[in-house]
Design a protein around this nucleic acid. Structure first.
Lengths: 169, 169
DNA sequence: GTTGGAATGTCAACAAGGCTGACATAAAGT
DNA sequence: ACTTTATGTCAGCCTTGTTGACATTCCAAC
């Protein structure tokens, strides 16, 4: 059914990249690449007895120190109960500092401790190394395209989170 | 530490795209984009009481009809026990047909039933629609770059799986 | 000032889907 | 025939997602 992108009827011959086959390859590329993307951090995390959920929390706390649980929630797109379990272990293990808010005592503001920063560095170094290698192999023009397609693939809400983080950066 | 990609020392000024900040943005882009990538199938799967694991199995069985459990295993990168649970429910529900091999009776060859193909279509249509939209917004050149970076990000073993599938396609 | 609703975060219990270990069956080598 | 190897299945554990119930804090109405 519906080979919607072909050069056959109507459109332009510039739409060859929208064939179902091309799209399928893109889908598989995402799948395999994401495996590579998470492989190195996963190995490090296993040494600590942590999982990807811990990595994500650590990443975004490092990115926005002092962020609240609620804010982290909307970034991660999980339930607060799920995030809470992860945060609790990180606080217990002394990687994250959770301070009650001054203005609003319902909120908890989250910071990495020195120990937390150390793990963040390890994870982030490994993941950046993979990314750097891929970027280097693909070249600067490819990187621009890569980022453009990824951004277009996000849900609008996630895209706005993404660009907000970008502006901070 | 280690702002390894800067234009500062040694290399060329064409390496600005390798700054730690750029790499971090790439990492976050992957994270947010992958969420979008899986969002539509996830909704459909939920109606059937299935999860992503079922989707992956269905996708690759459709891609290589008659493939064996062992072959699927190396594509998916999970344990056979894990895959088996998913396959069992798909066979029970009549979406997948599992036929004992002729040459080697230890092997099971996997096929989608009509019902399985129907679900595959739904999932794949939704995911391709998202991909098509992203490709269209980003443009053909961006798509080439996207694919190049993703391919460079894979583990070598996954990359060879990927290109093998490509050749079949 | 008290009270009721909304927001924030925590605790408990359950489900999906990873994992390892133990095992049955079939094929292949000795 | 007998051991070794490959393939697939069954059982049980762990992480991490989910919903439901609840405590605390804030704010607005009274």
């Amino acid at each position: 059914m519906a080979d919607s992108g072909g050069a056959g009827a109507g459109g332009g011959e510039t739409l060859l990249f929208l064939t179902d086959e091309q799209l399928r390859k893109g889908i598989e590329a995402m799948f395999f690449a994401y495996r590579g993307f998470t492989a190195d951090p996963d190995r490090i995390l296993a040494d600590y007895g942590y999982g990807r959920a811990h990595h994500r929390a650590i990443h975004f706390i490092n990115r926005s120190p002092g962020t609240t649980v609620n804010n982290l929630l909307s970034l991660l797109g999980v339930t607060k109960q799920s995030l809470n379990r992860v945060l609790r272990t990180l606080v217990e293990d002394g990687l994250v500092d959770s301070r009650v808010g001054n203005r609003d005592k319902r909120e908890r503001h989250l910071f990495l401790t020195a120990q937390g920063s150390e793990l963040e560095q390890k994870l982030s170094d490994a993941q950046r190394a993979r990314m750097r290698q891929a970027y280097r192999l693909a070249g600067p023009d490819a990187v621009v395209g890569f980022r453009r397609v990824l951004e277009a693939m996000m849900d609008p809400e996630m895209r706005s989170h993404f660009t907000t983080l970008k502006d901070q950066g």
